Simulated assay, not measured.
Amino acid sequence: MLQTALLATRLAVRDALRAEFGGAGSSSAGVRGRVLVAVSGGADSLALSAAAAFSAVREGFTVAAVVVDHGLQAGSADVADRAAEQVRSLGIDPVLVRRAEVSASRSRRSGPEASARHARYAVLAESAREVGAVAILTGHTRDDQAEQVLLGIARGSGARSLAGIPPRRGLGDGIVVLRPFVRAEHGITRAVTAAACREAQLEAWQDPQNSDRAYTRVRVRGAVLPLLERELGPGVAAALARTADLAREDAEAFDAMVEEQIEEIVEHAEAGIAVSAGALAANPAALRHRIIRRVAEAEFGSELSREHTLAIAALVTHWRGQGPIEAPGITVSRVAGRVEFTRRAGSPRGPAASARVADGAAAMEE
């Protein structure tokens, strides 16, 4: 039987590794380092494990895996052990099983899904360092991408959010996260990963939380996307994924422009950071607003809302002598033709990265 789904997932992994590390590599496993597969036990991560066990080795890498147990459901340890057993049957070694500690306080602040994601990536980064991996592979699919774009639209949070799940992101220490199924030219869907598991004779776990309508993403997956497909016709998920690709290209271009501008117009002031009001005014609104947000985030760890961004921009475009703008963790004033950002007295926000704004700041992702 022709294993078309398994072949598609293998090609996606191969292409992602070649895009990141170049060339066809070596037939000798380990020559180019080790990759770490993130495993939950679901069809997406098991299909990714099977694909990596085949393609990564042929590209000159050894393969390790880590099964992340969030401990949020009864029997989760058994699910993790079963997933690890299946991954080992593919010839992957070592296979780690690690518990992700989900912070209750973070869950209250940002929701259980965001808290679990934060805990998961902390485990992934630690595991990658433990096994000496140069890349972490995750099983996000085109369907995940479509859902992310819809959630971004619902939040009204701009082009960066519409860019969805990036196919690649850096974690520091020379480690990158690669999402081969998102990057694949035609996208790998959940239907493909489920078929790949059947072809590889792997038994995927069905996470009950994936049908719990208390989660916004589940409602998007189970109700919103199917409704759009029925009313607008098939292909909506693919179109949303293409939208993410286009938005990401635009966002990356804007990011490059912002970095160039920041190097030229940002300087350190006695009490913080100053930006030339004239230089800001000379930029179109899209760049001006990005520069303002980047300065606030990179130097002060302040994530500005749309309202705060517009209020600060008004110090440039509608200057009538108005007083300082109080934003999360910072005070922004116009002084002698400059817009000055200072840390607000008593602000609980600590310093952001020690790198100067002019050295560039990591672009926001999801």
Rank of each mutant, 00 (worst) to 15 (best):
G23R: 06
S26H: 08
G30T: 01
L36D: 05
S40P: 05
G42S: 09
G42M: 06
A52G: 08
F54C: 07
G60I: 12
V63A: 10
A80M: 10
Q86R: 10
S89F: 04
A104F: 05
S110W: 13
P112C: 02
E113R: 09
A114C: 08
A116P: 07
A119T: 05
L137T: 08
D143K: 03
E147C: 04
S157G: 05
A159T: 15
P167S: 13
R168M: 01
T189Q: 00
T193L: 09
A195T: 08
E199R: 07
A200P: 12
A204H: 09
S211Y: 02
S211E: 12
R242Y: 04
A247H: 08
A247W: 12
E252N: 10
E252Y: 01
A253M: 11
F254R: 15
F254W: 10
Q261F: 11
A271Q: 13
G272V: 02
A274Y: 05
S276P: 01
G278Y: 04
L280R: 03
R290P: 01
I291L: 15
I292H: 00
R293E: 15
V295E: 07
E297A: 14
S302M: 06
A314M: 01
P324A: 13
T331Y: 01
T331W: 06
V335Q: 06
G337K: 04
R344T: 07
A352K: 07
A353I: 10
A355G: 14
D359A: 15
G360I: 06
M364P: 03
